[in-house]
Design a protein around this nucleic acid. Structure first.
Lengths: 245, 245
DNA sequence: CAGTGGTCTAGACCACACG
DNA sequence: GTGTGGTCTAGACCACTGA
């Protein structure tokens, strides 16, 4: 194991704190609340800022969940959504396959005009009419993914989405069979949560997220859907077989 | 585009700051230094803590680079290493293919004993002798990836690595042809940089990183190498074709 | 050595959830 | 209202770099 080799004489305060916090979290039952930050900071003999810094780690691992106006809670070990990346599947399909219950929250469907980037990705003109579908995936009342689909309005009207829409644009398109889909070209990145996404996922701004940016292609080569997906670490295991040649 | 809809009356200070900072960075030539933090904070009328918070974004995007004891510098737009994920290739090979110069820094080769996790991943006994090879990839003197390979000592001795070793364990194994490699099973995650990794990559603790955890398999099914790779966002574009079925 | 970023403090005010 | 987490301040000290 690679060790931290501090060139300083004593460990940083936040590292000491992290150990103490790990203890506290370990002995706290899932669902229970931690002491309020000012109180906890006082007990541990540090300022609130330092305490919060130490807490970031655990928030990032999904071990605690902080809710403004309510408190900080210990989270039980969640069930992980494990999947290969070779085949494009909706989160809903994935979850169903492993017997995990997921629900959708915060569904927003809005008409927008193509920005320069969107126009390029979707192979349409700038300011072309687009439909934007955004939603949050929850498991056990916990937001774990934030998904945004953007597609030309002529491919999917707001009205069509009313009946039998489970939230997944992909599932909807697959069920409709028209146009026929072939593949998705996905870009994989790591990003820090912006304020709006942090709010949607009930995490802190700056927290780490895995992001997929994908273009979905039809048989005729058209781009049908431009999607951006944000995943909380710890709740998903994306795997991939890479060939050696 | 989804807008931030602040329920509050005025935007947060750090958001205003980010706009101002974006301006400053835009008009500063790559390689030039920004004003010192206390000075900059004073000019912008905020505390240093708030300024630093606003700077995190740009650090994460690789637009600025902070070096303790030296200063904060504007970074020119780097060349992106773009690649599909289907085929396992070393960073060195990738870079060469697109004509990008990379160098290796901070090479460490050490003998360790298998931890429980490592033993499981490599299919060996706990405390079995392992070789750990860690290194940093630099382009243009900028650390962009931190790579750790762990493999059984009987597969690769410290001595063997002396001659013609470019840093890539994968390239070395491929060149040796024995044992024959078949595939890599890779797990994709997003993580926050720990103190030690932040130091190696010259970023801030907590900054966002893309992480690959991979097991490399030989023809006979043995696990030859257990590797962990950390990538700075902005310097790599990992792409993937996902099948629809 | 002087000047930089890295960390920490004590305190304050705000936005939010809930009764 | 009360109590929570979210943000911000002014100041301090430390660790690091390079002259």
């Amino acid at each position: 194991m690679a060790k931290d080799e501090p060139t300083t004489t004593s460990p940083q305060t936040y590292q000491r704190l992290q150990n103490q916090l790990a203890q506290i979290i370990a002995v706290t039952k899932p669902g229970e609340r931690l002491l309020a930050e000012p109180e906890l900071a006082k007990q541990m003999g540090v300022s609130r800022a330092t305490l919060r810094e130490a807490m970031r780690t655990f928030e990032g691992q999904g071990l605690i969940r902080r809710r403004q106006g309510v408190g900080t809670f210990v989270v039980g070990h969640p069930q992980v959504i494990e999947t290969g990346l070779e085949v494009l599947q909706s989160i809903e399909t994935l979850a169903k396959r492993i017997g995990l219950e997921v629900s959708m929250g915060d569904l927003k469907i809005s008409k927008i005009e193509a920005s320069a980037e969107q126009a390029r990705s979707l192979q349409v003109e700038v300011e072309a009419p687009l439909l934007q579908v955004s939603r949050v995936i929850l498991t056990d009342d916990r937001p774990v993914a934030y998904l945004v689909d953007i597609l030309p309005q002529n491919l999917l009207s707001q009205e069509e989405l009313q009946d039998g829409f489970n939230g997944s644009v992909l599932d909807f398109l697959l069920r409709r069979k028209q146009p026929a889909l072939t593949k998705s070209l996905t870009d994989i990145q790591a990003v820090a949560a912006s304020s709006s996404i942090a709010r949607a996922l009930e995490i802190q701004r700056g927290d780490v997220l895995l992001m997929f940016v994908a273009r979905l292609f039809a048989e005729d080569g058209r781009v049908i859907d431009f999607s951006t997906s944000y995943f909380l670490p710890g709740y998903f295991h994306f795997q991939l077989v890479r060939r050696v040649e």
